[in-house]
């Protein structure tokens, strides 16, 4: 993530890279660009706190639902990082709503479509289990998206990118992140026993 003070918006702009998550109550803007990854914007209207997470579920999900699915565990952990940041800012799950973007289909072959479909299904199941209302979603398709989100107001703005070369640096980072996630799709966290 990078932070920029001098920009055309007149407030601090945080640019999130693939794999990043961030939550704040500051009067600022969060922005990112996504192709295949999903971008989740969360807003707590009761406390004027917002956050954004940029991640991917590394592969297609099985049909048993996210609780029984090993790939979904990676997505749940990504959401946990974002929700943990929201809680640290003083937010509670009860007053949240979500806006969902991304999961575009890129590359040829069935796996690209299956990954996009799996990511979309993951998000729907996750937010339904969490009982968090999804107030807006724009998912799938063969489009890259640039997203702005104001964490205080919860207002988001999405632009379809016409020229892929405009954001070639971002696309390179996204591809690196996606490759890393696919290679480490069974990655688990550390286990420490204190005795």
């Amino acid at each position: 993530m990078i932070r920029s003070e001098s920009n055309r918006f007149g407030k601090t702009l945080y640019i999130l890279y693939p794999g990043d998550y961030f939550a704040t109550s500051a009067n600022c803007l969060l922005a990112t660009v996504t192709g295949s990854c999903v971008v989740v914007c969360i807003h707590d209207a009761a406390r004027n706190i917002g956050g954004m997470g940029h991640f991917i579920l590394p592969g297609a999900m099985g049909t048993e639902g996210i609780i029984a699915d090993d790939i979904a565990k990676q997505g749940i952990a990504s959401m946990e990082h974002l929700m943990g940041e929201m809680v640290k800012q003083g937010s509670s799950r009860k007053s949240l709503r979500a806006i969902l973007y991304g999961a575009g289909v890129f590359g040829s072959g069935a796996s690209a479509g299956a990954t996009s479909g799996g990511n979309i299904r993951f998000l729907h199941e996750y937010f339904s289990l969490e009982k968090i209302h999804v107030s807006r979603e724009d998912l799938g398709g063969t489009v890259r998206r640039k997203i702005f989100f104001c964490p205080r107001t919860g207002v988001s703005y999405r632009k379809f990118l016409k020229n892929n070369n405009d954001h070639s640096e971002f696309m390179k980072l996204e591809n690196e992140y996606i490759s890393y996630m696919f290679v480490n799709k069974e990655k688990c966290g550390r286990i420490i026993l204190f005795d």
């Binding site: 550390r190 286990i191 420490i192 026993l193």
Partner: peptide
């Protein structure tokens, strides 16, 4: 007694 970092198997 112990600490597990998510995700867990």
């Amino acid at each position: 007694s112990g600490w597990i970092v998510k995700p867990f198997s």
